[in-house]
Simulated scan of single mutants.
Amino acid sequence: MPEPRTPHQLLERSQELFLRKDLDAFADLFAEDGTHELPFAPPGVPAYLRGREPIRRYLTSITSTPLEIKEFRNQVVHDTADPEVIIAEYEAAGVVTATGRPYSVRYVQLLRARAGEIVTWRDYWSPLDGVRALGLRGLLPVIVQTIRARIARGRQATSGASVFPASSTMPGT
């Protein structure tokens, strides 16, 4: 695919990269000071990231998620009065790798693009859909990892270093 330039092309390219789990390349679609927002982020998942490299660290941390996306379906893309902005509604459908069970997570995303780069990616996904997909057994590793990350952040905060919030097993990027 040629270099994406429009919001529609960036959305299409991002979905191709998600299906391949190439989230490092997805981060390359963001402007240097772009933002990735997750307004409904559960505990342990950052609600706001600014900058391509923090976004890259977050996105690449979720490649080990036990939810493997197989397809995007029921997609509707809405143009807005602002040519830089589109709003996409769709479902990500796939399998829980630990159990083989199918799952579906609903998304509404606002994408703002400028000069062929994503400047804003606002991701309204349903954490409840993720919980349903993983089930109680699947959530236990998420809970343990969240606790460990919080402990590590507490230790790093006292030493003056920064720790990126870990959430490698939660869906919703």
Rank of each mutant, 00 (worst) to 15 (best):
D123N: 13
R114M: 06
R137P: 00
A41N: 04
Y48R: 14
P83R: 14
Q109P: 00
I86G: 10
I86W: 14
V77T: 15
S14K: 06
A93D: 05
G116D: 01
R52V: 00
L29C: 09
G138K: 00
T120C: 02
E89T: 14
F18A: 05
Q75G: 07
G135H: 08
V142D: 05
S104R: 10
E91Q: 04
P39V: 15
G34F: 01
A31N: 13
R101G: 09
P83K: 10
I69H: 08
A93L: 12
G130A: 04
V105D: 00
E68V: 00
Y90R: 11
E16H: 03
A47T: 01
L139T: 07
A41K: 01
L139R: 10
I86E: 08
Y58A: 05
F26V: 11
A88H: 09
T63Q: 02
P46G: 08
D22N: 15
E37D: 07
S14A: 12
L10C: 13
L67R: 07
P46R: 10
V45Y: 09
R50F: 06
T146K: 08
L17T: 11
R106I: 01
R106T: 07
E84N: 12
R56M: 02
G51K: 01
V85W: 10
T99F: 02
V77H: 13
R137S: 06
A31C: 10
A152T: 03
R114W: 09
F72E: 07
I62V: 15
